[in-house]
């Protein structure tokens, strides 16, 4: 990428971030709630994007990890724990569970991890629903408090939105660093060609598990924010459907692109809201839009951009070649 376009990108990023901070200031409560939901789902989708997009492992358990996070936060904060310590515990739990769940993926490849994680999702839903002593079963946990951050209460919609946005910012920075680190390169080597990665001395076992465990922990973080956002947690939102929705966010946004989950979560969370003018038909329109998008670009929204950029690059290169050619001929 040229220096010029990089500058352009940085400027664009700053404008978007400033926009996300300033514009919602005069949003109503509904708008802030939806935007907070978008931020939370983006975090969960980023985790899955690491597992799937960078390390190439299909997981259908991300929704279950969001559920573990949400229940962890709900149970602990209603028992008087601060949210931050609930977060710490949830990250550790999700990381360990993710690590253990990744083991079957090592025995067999490809869609089998999807199947194991599918089973895990169903099991977790049953645990959330049936273990009433812990989760209050189907009645769910209500009155989940919103935290105080450095003494600032986040009970109102705007401060809580900033909490979600700030968390999203931190997670994004961490992810950006991770992907550029040797680990990130190892993950990608794993996706592109596991055997070659192994022959280059990458411990494929460890990195596969690591990618899956980190991705799961991010799901947990999203859940920890989800609980105080809705202030009510029950088992139904964390059934298999959420995992499938998150998978959709990653694919539709553009799997393996850093910004994919942001756009994917926009499609999944914001698009249905924009389509609500169609009333009874809004979900139909939504389904049609997703299908049309995937037919047009199976590699997601960023796939379109990627194609556009690379075709422009080829054009630019051939233009350069042509110019050089004519110069050469002129010189001859």
């Amino acid at each position: 990428m040229s220096k010029h376009s990089r500058l352009l990108l940085v400027a664009l990023a700053i404008i978007v971030i400033a926009g996300l901070i300033i514009i919602p200031m005069n949003f109503n409560r509904y708008g802030l709630y939806i935007l907070s939901q978008w931020a939370v789902m983006t975090i969960a989708a980023m985790g899955l994007n690491l597992t799937l997009g960078y390390a190439g492992q299909v997981s259908l358990a991300q929704g279950a990890f969001v559920g573990i996070g949400a229940y962890g936060a709900a149970i602990l904060t209603t028992h008087g724990w601060p949210l931050i310590s609930a977060l710490g515990l949830v990250i550790v739990i999700c990381f360990i569970v993710g690590w253990l769940l990744g083991y079957p993926a090592l025995r067999v490849q490809h869609h089998y991890l999807a199947f194991v994680t599918l089973a895990f999702s169903t099991l977790m839903f049953l645990v959330f629903r049936n273990e009433s002593w812990l989760t209050n079963g189907i009645y769910g946990i209500s009155n989940i408090p919103r935290p105080e951050i450095f003494g600032f209460p986040t009970r109102k919609p705007l401060p809580f939105y900033y909490l979600c946005l700030g968390s999203l910012g931190l997670v994004t920075l961490a992810m950006w660093w991770l992907i550029r680190s040797p680990w990130g390169r190892a993950f990608m080597a794993l996706r592109e060609n596991p055997i070659r990665a192994q022959s280059l001395g990458i411990d494929t076992r460890r990195y596969t598990l690591m990618a899956f465990a980190i991705g799961s922990a991010l799901g947990g973080i999203a859940g920890v924010l989800y609980a105080p956002l809705t202030q009510y947690v029950d088992p139904v939102p964390f059934n298999l459907q959420l995992s499938l929705d998150l998978l959709m966010m990653v694919i539709v946004g553009g799997s393996g692109f850093m910004l994919g989950p942001f756009l994917g979560a926009m499609i999944a969370v914001l698009l249905p809201e924009w389509l609500r003018f169609a009333e009874g038909y809004y979900l139909m329109l939504y389904a049609a839009a997703v299908i049309a998008l995937l037919i047009y670009s199976p590699s997601g929204i960023l796939g379109i951009l990627d194609r556009y950029l690379s075709s422009r690059r080829t054009q630019a290169a051939s233009a350069l070649r042509a110019a050089a050619q004519s110069k050469l001929e002129a010189a001859r």
């Binding site: 998978l247 694919i251 979900l283 139909m284 997703v290 995937l294 037919i295 199976p298 590699s299 997601g300």
Partner: peptide, 24 residues
């Protein structure tokens, strides 16, 4: 249009199709 782009995008599209059929 999607078959040669691998299993996942098509699987996701059929998920959306399922929503669409139910809603219709």
């Amino acid at each position: 249009p999607m078959l040669r782009h691998g299993v996942l995008p098509l699987a996701i599209a059929t998920m959306a199709l399922a929503i669409g059929i139910k809603e219709v």
